[in-house]
Amino acid sequence: MSVTINVHQVGRLIDKVRGHIGNEYIEVLHGIRLDVDASHLHAVASDRYTIAAARYELNDTERNREAFARTIPAAWLKPLREWLDAQAGNLTVTIGTETGRLVFATPATEMRVPVTDNVEYPDWRALLRGVAAEIPTIYAFPAVDARMLARWADTDDTLRVRVTSDLRAFMVFGEDFVGAQMPKKFTGVGPDMDATFEQALGLWPSIFADNNQDAADMADMPAEEKPRYEAAPTVPDMVETLLQQTLRSTSDLLGAPSKDHGAMASFAIAGVNAWSAYRFLNALHTADPRLAAKVVADLGEELDAGDFSENAWDIAEKAGHDPQAWHDDYAEHLKKLADKRAAEQPAA
């Protein structure tokens, strides 16, 4: 099973979708899927929230070969891209499979990328059909400049989008932000600027031509498998986590046995700390959303590294405190509690 394509086109396929790769906590999505059907080589990537598919049309001699699909692991994308950059762009590269490998070969050299042969990648065609099925074909379908879309990232906000008609600006709204962007007048999809959504779907017949094919919902994509105590990666996620922890701790506190003072104290402290963290984060986000986002991201990395307790000790010392005395006092407190419980136990 193999197809041929020039080196430059392979690089373009990778570059078009690599920004949509899922993180390491969704193993099946942590890479780029190469998918060959009867007419095209596709590069596909998804992070659960977005999905992108780029394609390269096979020449007549390559068509109708046996279909195959393999996922290039994210860790191998950088060395693969560097290998491609080292080749002349017009060189022909053959992409083929062997057991546990995806093989990229030019007339002079080759690169073997380890892959899992039978990975169950989400049915990206069905997912796109599921999204398209929710959009009326008469829906306004303006063309936009992808480079201009990136400008909205600096709003540090969740934006809502309202599209009016094909040749008019669309509007964006955030909590403290409003804007608009004009469409781009070009014939990149469809036969002309009046191309409809239905005509655009027709350019991808292998996905959208058969209305009887299965459709899937992107809400059912694989979930992240994060370490249990990892911090949320964004401010909204962190807010949700802290509020959940506050409510859960309160519920645990109310349900704890009245004589289990240790458990009650732990639940109370957890709830107070979660609520305090929420209040501080909310205030920081109001004052400086960009700084709040950076703090949350940095916190996630620190918790993932696992050395935050050692850092807290060092910070306490530098602030003029005595963490050893804290440790000794707490140890003595625990000893007194243990002695008290032992004395309250009835004699055997």
Rank of each mutant, 00 (worst) to 15 (best):
L127D: 00
L242R: 03
R101L: 05
N6S: 07
D156P: 01
T187H: 07
F170K: 03
R33A: 11
A347F: 08
A348N: 07
M1N: 12
I207A: 02
L91T: 06
Y278L: 14
D194W: 09
L128R: 01
F186Q: 09
A67V: 09
A231T: 09
S2K: 12
P233K: 03
T234A: 02
A45D: 02
K318W: 05
S165T: 13
V93L: 04
R279Q: 14
R18E: 13
G100K: 01
I26Y: 01
A74S: 10
D328Y: 04
A150M: 08
I207V: 13
L29H: 03
T155A: 15
R125N: 07
A338F: 10
A325S: 11
R70H: 10
M238W: 00
D288W: 03
E225D: 15
F208H: 00
P205D: 04
H333E: 13
D210T: 04
R63C: 10
R125E: 09
I95A: 01
L80Y: 02
V178M: 15
E57I: 07
Y25H: 11
N211Y: 07
M238D: 00
R112A: 11
P114W: 02
V295M: 05
R160M: 09
N59C: 14
E175P: 05
H42R: 14
E134A: 13
D156H: 15
G255Q: 09
F173R: 13
V172G: 02
L203A: 15
L281G: 03
K336G: 13
L203Y: 07
F308M: 04
T61L: 12
K78V: 07
T4G: 05
M1T: 15
R162C: 09
A169L: 07
E82T: 11
D47I: 02
E27H: 12
L254F: 11
L41Q: 01
P142W: 07
D37P: 01
V113T: 04
L127A: 04
T196G: 00
D85K: 15
S249R: 00
H42Y: 13
D157S: 10
E302P: 01
K259Q: 12
L284W: 04
R341Q: 12
L29I: 03
E98L: 08
V17S: 00
R18I: 08
A316K: 06
A268E: 05
A305H: 08
